[in-house]
């Protein structure tokens, strides 16, 4: 489980447009890494390039190297589908499959890939994943009800359960709590602290308190101006970023002087 990710000289494009330039960073296993920065600075784009979700858009592509425990994710014979099985993702808006029950949503990663698994094993896996996402107690009596009947916060935890059910090495979270109320946000944050025992977690957030609360490492992305590529300005332990950052821009952003 939990692998490290090394990114070197990564440029990310939408067609001809260079969206993010020159990222060099190492993401530690069994920790939470937070990415912060103003809107449009490319932090979500960077996150999506880590599990090759970026290239789902027509014309989108990258240059450079992303390696997970030494294995090049963009290697010539690497299937992006396999990459995504090892690096799970949770999105900004909860997106459970509306046609499926709660149970089927958690089992979706197995079922949709037509992986054979005994019913009892699958039951175990669903229970484990829902326990891992702190949702088991709330839904164990209605596993066969549609997932769309859950609240927003529950749906997001269901999506986390769905992501960890395929047992990935890394979990990417793209502003997972920004569409949720404060109570649900707290539940998600608690969950992250538990999950980092087993997974490498990378989270994009707009909420600096959240980054300070949950993460060990923080990366600050910024953009020089419209049409310019976003860049990773500073990457340091979270405590340092929020108390004594190396860069002036980081300090300005954190103290609320812009962004």
């Amino acid at each position: 489980m939990a692998k490290r990710i090394d990114v070197s000289d990564l440029n990310i494009y939408y067609g001809d447009f260079l969206a993010v330039a020159d990222v060099n960073v190492s993401i530690e296993p069994r920790s939470v890494t937070a990415l912060i920065g103003p809107s449009g600075c490319g932090k979500s784009t960077f996150l999506r390039s880590l599990n090759r979700m970026h290239e789902v858009l027509p014309g989108a592509h990258v240059e450079g190297k992303v390696a997970m425990d030494g294995q090049d994710l963009y290697g010539p014979d690497v299937d992006p589908v396999d990459v995504r099985r090892q690096i799970g993702m949770v999105f900004q808006r909860p997106n459970p499959f509306p046609t499926m029950s709660i149970y089927d949503n958690v089992a979706a990663g197995i079922r949709l890939n037509a992986r054979k698994m005994k019913r009892t094993e699958l039951d175990d896996l669903v229970e484990r994943s829902l326990l891992g996402a702190n949702l088991w107690k709330e839904v164990k009596d209605r596993l066969n009800r549609p997932a769309s009947g859950l609240s927003g916060g529950q749906q997001q935890r269901l999506c986390i359960a769905r992501a960890i059910a395929v047992e990935p090495d890394v979990l990417l979270m793209d502003e997972p709590a920004s569409a949720l109320d404060p109570i649900s946000t707290l539940a998600i944050e608690d969950l992250m602290t538990e999950l980092k025992e087993r997974f490498t977690i990378v989270i994009v957030t707009h909420n600096m308190q959240q980054a300070a609360r949950v993460s060990e490492q923080t990366g600050f992305f910024n953009i020089a101006g419209p049409g310019q590529p976003g860049r990773l300005i500073e990457f340091n332990p979270t405590e340092k970023i929020f108390s004594n950052p190396d860069e002036k821009a980081t300090e300005d952003y954190i103290s609320g002087r812009f962004g």
Partner: peptide, 29 residues
């Protein structure tokens, strides 16, 4: 069919054709 559902399936490591057959079409049935 919302794009979010396709992305959810891709992020689980589901190939595109299975995403269409098992997620997109059932949602739109």
């Amino acid at each position: 069919v919302p794009n979010e559902l396709r992305e959810a399936a891709y992020a689980l490591g589901v190939p595109k054709w299975r995403t269409i057959v098992k997620v997109v079409i059932p949602t739109a049935i």
